[in-house]
Design a protein around this nucleic acid. Sequence first.
DNA 1: GACAATTTGGATAAGCAATGTCCGCATTGA
DNA 2: TCAATGCGGACATTGCTTATCCAAATTGTC
Lengths: 168, 168
Amino acid sequence: MRYSQSTELAIDSLLYMAARPEASDFSVEQVAAAQEVSASYLAKVFQQLVKAGVLRSHRGSKGGYALGRPLSLITLRDIAVVFEGSSPLYECDGYARTCSLGPKCLVKATFDEAERKMHEVLAKVSLQDVVAQAGQEAAWTAAHGCAPLPPPVAVTQADSVGQGGATS
Amino acid sequence: MRYSQSTELAIDSLLYMAARPEASDFSVEQVAAAQEVSASYLAKVFQQLVKAGVLRSHRGSKGGYALGRPLSLITLRDIAVVFEGSSPLYECDGYARTCSLGPKCLVKATFDEAERKMHEVLAKVSLQDVVAQAGQEAAWTAAHGCAPLPPPVAVTQADSVGQGGATS
DNA sequence: GACAATTTGGATAAGCAATGTCCGCATTGA
DNA sequence: TCAATGCGGACATTGCTTATCCAAATTGTC
Ligand code: SF4
Ligand code: SF4
């Protein structure tokens, strides 16, 4: 059991956009390049986020994606449920087969409670909390000489290089 | 994201054995028949439980499986980790790619905390708790005329209220 | 209005882990 | 010895996730 890559990619992408409050429309291409994933795939992820209301899309030329709500109203839980679904993690399959215990069963009740507690934690942290903490972190790491995030809003031109043999 | 069928099958099977404390060795065939699954598959599940110490196996003629520990020392968490693994649900893939934040990142920290809380709940409930609650449940449902579990040995013989008619 | 940029949705392939089965071997009690 | 049983490996099947491509729709700009 593991969170899908789509969930992690969505969070990182939203965080990328959240860290650049000045820009209003991000193209899939731009974000995909920053996250080092294919635009094809990220496009699908964004579509799901639009359907969920987390992103707003703007079609046509000069179009792109923007956050659909204030940062403080987008929690980690909101993003997770888009890709992981909201049906219970523990399905209680045996109930349909051999077991005649139902929702009253302590097994099912415990797993549901565990899942609820998990969601409770995720719902308490919004993207705003994350960027705020990242900002403090940035100040700390800057004092030690490492770059905490790809430089904000500084990416404009100067990307005519880069496509050569990357690895090895 | 969902718990694997193996996890649910394991729990139901262990519960089946736990409800019959007199029998000491259960063959795969017997349990598989009760759970209405193939013996082939259940055998694989049991092998993993043996490796984890939850079950003890007894090879050879008259062999079978028995619980490896007292009921009170087998928690739902113990069973879950056998099939779901213990690595974090949120892998933080972007960390390896583009993100330079690490374990200090609030995203990762929050998901880890959520998972920890979840495990905390699961670790608090043992098989003993489940069978005890099922016993109480049995008394309650018996008064209403339904069969809560395939009649184990621990049922009071005081009242024989129409246990005959099984479902069609 | 033509054009370019961009999202949308469908179709679909590739990859991978979970599911499910089979069979020969090892072990053990009778 | 023999039968019953678990063990472990190999394998087939299935379904979901990942990933790509393309035609269509939309929209700003010239
Ligand atoms: S035991 Fe509890 S969890 Fe397992 S099948 Fe019966 S009801 Fe569902
Ligand atoms: S943002 Fe946090 S979670 Fe996402 S990759 Fe960077 S460190 Fe891992």
